[in-house]
């Protein structure tokens, strides 16, 4: 094993893993982080801690990750290329290791024009593939991006940060045929696991997975399928219209529209999707993105037959 994080260990054991997401607060609210962590504890093998998601300022992913770790979660720290240059990234990666954090998800990040500081200067010193490569090289080659060894002084021992490297994949963005090439590049860069964009269009996802399997990529990386419970058809309509890189079938919107209890229907759809993606060759787990709805995760995990979560052997 490369890192020995809980996530890596369970994947190595061959378990079908379940990850969830914790969105840090938009204020310095420590109690909210603890409250969200308490909801998810025991129901997810690892939990993504988002990094200024949708370009809105929040408690930093590493700070919220450290709190979550203390509260008994296994955090996956998200890191975007939007807000930091290579110095800040590497400093934060060292910091994450020092805090005992072991999983890192490398992302481009939503453009700042979507968030609450649209006039900000963005960084993009590296892109997400270069970030994944840097994190891997820090771990395996024990060097900084500049090539220097990771040690405090010339005579000090090398103490490198060790991260289980995650990346995202969006099978629904364009150009569709490029999406598998991009995944292959991310694996070449050093990705250990992949979490996909949330799946609503199962046929398109299957088509992408077939290309993934044809290239043998499923054997080189752990693939977790992203799912998202929604509370109403309006959410789906909004995403279809406003969120680039999403594929949302009209039948799904109609089904949510016709539901007597839309929240229950949203959960039901999510559970059905979990069961369907589980059958697809190469899928090693699910990533449940209940955005600002962490409280629903325990029942999704239970009703999808994923509870109790496996133990490390």
């Amino acid at each position: 094993m490369k890192v020995g994080s809980r996530l890596e260990t369970l994947l190595t054991q061959g378990e079908f893993v379940a990850t969830a997401e914790l969105g840090p607060p938009k204020s310095a609210d420590l109690e909210l982080i603890k409250k969200k962590a308490a909801i998810l504890r025991g129901y997810a093998d690892a939990v993504n801690i988002t990094d200024n998601q949708t370009a809105i300022v929040r408690v930093s992913s590493i700070a919220a990750g450290k709190i979550s770790l203390d509260e008994g979660l296994e955090p996956i720290i998200q890191m975007t290329c939007r807000d930091r240059n290579r110095l800040a990234m590497q400093a934060d990666i060292l910091g994450a290791h020092v805090f005992g954090l072991k999983n890192l998800l490398c992302l481009s990040g939503d453009h700042q024009s979507f968030g609450n500081h649209p006039q900000a200067k963005n960084v993009y010193d590296l892109d997400s593939i270069q970030l994944a490569q840097m994190v891997k090289n820090m771990r395996d080659e024990k060097v900084f991006q500049c090539g220097d060894e990771i040690k405090n002084t010339k005579k000090s021992e090398v103490i490198e940060p060790r991260m289980f490297v995650g990346v995202a994949a969006n099978p629904f963005a364009d150009p569709f045929e490029f999406r598998v090439i991009r995944l292959a590049k991310k694996i070449k860069a050093g990705a250990d696991f992949v979490q996909t964009q949330c799946i609503f269009d199962l046929p398109k996802f299957k088509e992408w997975m077939k290309m993934v399997v044809d290239r043998g990529l499923h054997e080189k990386v752990y693939l977790l399928a992203g799912v998202m419970p929604v509370k109403s058809y309006r959410v789906l309509q909004y995403m279809k219209k406003n969120v680039a890189g999403m594929s949302i079938p009209d039948e799904l919107i109609d089904r949510m529209k016709g539901a007597e209890d839309p929240k229950a229907e949203g959960v039901k759809i999510c559970i059905e999707l979990i069961q369907q993606v589980r059958e697809i060759e190469g899928i090693r787990g699910v990533h449940i993105m209940a955005v600002e709805w962490e409280a629903i995760v325990p029942s999704i995990v239970q009703e999808a037959g994923l509870y109790p979560r496996p133990q490390i052997q």
């Binding site: 939007r82 024009s113 963005n122 892109d127 364009d174 090439i181 590049k185 680039a244 890189g245």
Partner: peptide
């Protein structure tokens, strides 16, 4: 929009950039 060097981000759709559909996705 992000000066990416290794292909389009997940926000590329129908040949357009995620920040608005007046902008062509360079990587597309």
């Amino acid at each position: 929009s992000k000066s990416l060097l290794n292909g389009p981000c997940g926000g590329s759709q129908n040949g357009k950039c995620e920040i608005n559909d007046e902008i062509d996705c360079a990587w597309h």
